[in-house]
C-alpha cells in the first residue's frame, strides 16, 4: 500500500514524536511541531503512539492512495477533500484505491497532520522517522516531499478488521482547539534574562509581536519591539555583541533576541546551543499553539512560574489521555 505524491504542497514532511535523547550530539528532536494534533491523529486511526504521519504546512499536497486506507486529518483548518468532495477534520474516514486527497486553502492555524492507519513507513534514523531537512536525514530521504514520491504505509499488525469500525470516530468539538490570529504564549523567564534591562523585560512582555515570514520549523521570529541589554564588559568568550553570552545549551522553546530587535523562539529543528542570551522559554504545553500561529499573526508573551507551567503540562497530558480513551485507544 502506497501514497503517491501528485503535488507536494509547500512543505510536507514525515514526522513522528521526535528524535529525543541526542541533544548532546547537537541533534535537535525534529518531530511534529504541534504534538497535540499529531497524537490525536494517531488515536483517531488506531495507530500506536509514535507512528509517523505527515506534517503539512501552509499549503496542502495532492496525494493518491494506491489501496483503500483509513485516515484522519487534524490540526490547522485546511479542509481536506477526497476527489474534490469535502472530507472531515478531526474525524476518521476511509479512502478507496485511486482516491485523491487534496486540501482547501488554509483558513486558520498553520499546519495540519495526516495520520494513516499503519503509519508512514520510512526507515528509522536514530530511533525516529522524523525528517530533519537541514542536514538531510530522517523521514523520506531526509527532505520534504516532492512530486512523484511514493510513500509506503506500514503493516496493520493483523487488525484491519477492527479498522472499519473506526471510520466516523470524531474528536468531541469541545476538545478541538480553535486557532486565532492572536496567540498568547506562556514563558518561564530565565537562564540569561539577567542580560535585559528591567525596562526591556517590560517591553518584551508588553509588546504585541508579529510573526515574521521567516518563522519555520527551526524557529519563530517576531518583530514589533526593541530590546536593550544591560551594558557590561563582555566576559572572555562572549564576543562583543551585547546579545551574546558565553556559549551554553538552548532549551527547546527558548527565546533569544539577536541584535535586540527580533526575538526568536527556537523550535524542533533548531541548533542545540550557542552564544545568544536566552531570556525565557515558552512552556511545553503552549508550543502546540505556537506551531499553529503563522506568518503575520500576533503574539504576546506572558510570564508564568514553574508551577503553572507544570500544571499546564499535566492538564495537556490528561486531555490527550481523555481523547485517546474516548476514541477507544
Amino acid at each position: 500500500m502506497a501514497i503517491k505524491v501528485r503535488q507536494p504542497g509547500l512543505l510536507t514532511t514525515v514526522q513522528d514524536t521526535g528524535r529525543f535523547g541526542e541533544y548532546a550530539l547537537g541533534m535537535p528532536p525534529s518531530g511534529a511541531m504541534d504534538v497535540f494534533s499529531y497524537q490525536v491523529g494517531n488515536n483517531l486511526v488506531g495507530n500506536e503512539d509514535g507512528a509517523a504521519g505527515l506534517e503539512i504546512t501552509y499549503f496542502g499536497p495532492e496525494l493518491e492512495f494506491t489501496e483503500a486506507a483509513v485516515v484522519a486529518v487534524t490540526g490547522a483548518r485546511m479542509p481536506p477533500k477526497i476527489n474534490g468532495e469535502e472530507a472531515p477534520l478531526w474525524e476518521t474516514f476511509s479512502v478507496e484505491a485511486g482516491d485523491v486527497l487534496s486540501f482547501d486553502y488554509l483558513q486558520s492555524g498553520a499546519r495540519c497532520y495526516l495520520a494513516v492507519a499503519g503509519g508512514i513507513d520510512v526507515p528509522e534514523f536514530m530511533h525516529s522517522r522524523s525528517t530533519y531537512t537541514l542536514i538531510g536525514l530522517g523521514g523520506f530521504e531526509g527532505r520534504a516531499l516532492r512530486e512523484g514520491d511514493e510513500l509506503q504505509v506500514g503493516e496493520l499488525n493483523g487488525k484491519p478488521d477492527g479498522l472499519s469500525a473506526r471510520v466516523g470516530l470524531a474528536v468531541a468539538s469541545q476538545q478541538i482547539p480553535a486557532y486565532s490570529k492572536e496567540t498568547e504564549l506562556r514563558v518561564i523567564i530565565g537562564l540569561a534574562s539577567y542580560r535585559l534591562t528591567e525596562a526591556s523585560m517590560e517591553e518584551f512582555l508588553g509588546t504585541e509581536w508579529t510573526v515574521t515570514t521567516d518563522a519555520d520549523r527551526v524557529g519563530y521570529r517576531y518583530r514589533g519591539g526593541e530590546i536593550e541589554f544591560v551594558e557590561r564588559e563582555q566576559p572572555a568568550g562572549a564576543g562583543a555583541d551585547p546579545a551574546n553570552v558565553v556559549d551554553f545549551g538552548y532549551p527547546i522553546g527558548s527565546v533569544q533576541i539577536p541584535g535586540g530587535v527580533e526575538p526568536i523562539v527556537l523550535m524542533n529543528d533548531a541548533v542545540t546551543g550557542g552564544g545568544y542570551a536566552t531570556i525565557g522559554t515558552v512552556i511545553s504545553a503552549d508550543r502546540d499553539r505556537l506551531a499553529q500561529s503563522k506568518t503575520n499573526d500576533k503574539t504576546r508573551f506572558v510570564s508564568v512560574g514553574l508551577e503553572e507551567a507544570l500544571a499546564a503540562r499535566e492538564q495537556r497530558r490528561r486531555q490527550l489521555a481523555d481523547i485517546k480513551s474516548s476514541l477507544g485507544g
Binding site: L10, Y58, F59, L106, T213, K294, T295, N296
Partner: peptide
C-alpha cells in the same frame, strides 16, 4: 489570482 499561502 489568489495566494495559495500566507506570506509577504
Amino acid at each position: 489570482v489568489k495566494s495559495p499561502m500566507p506570506g509577504t
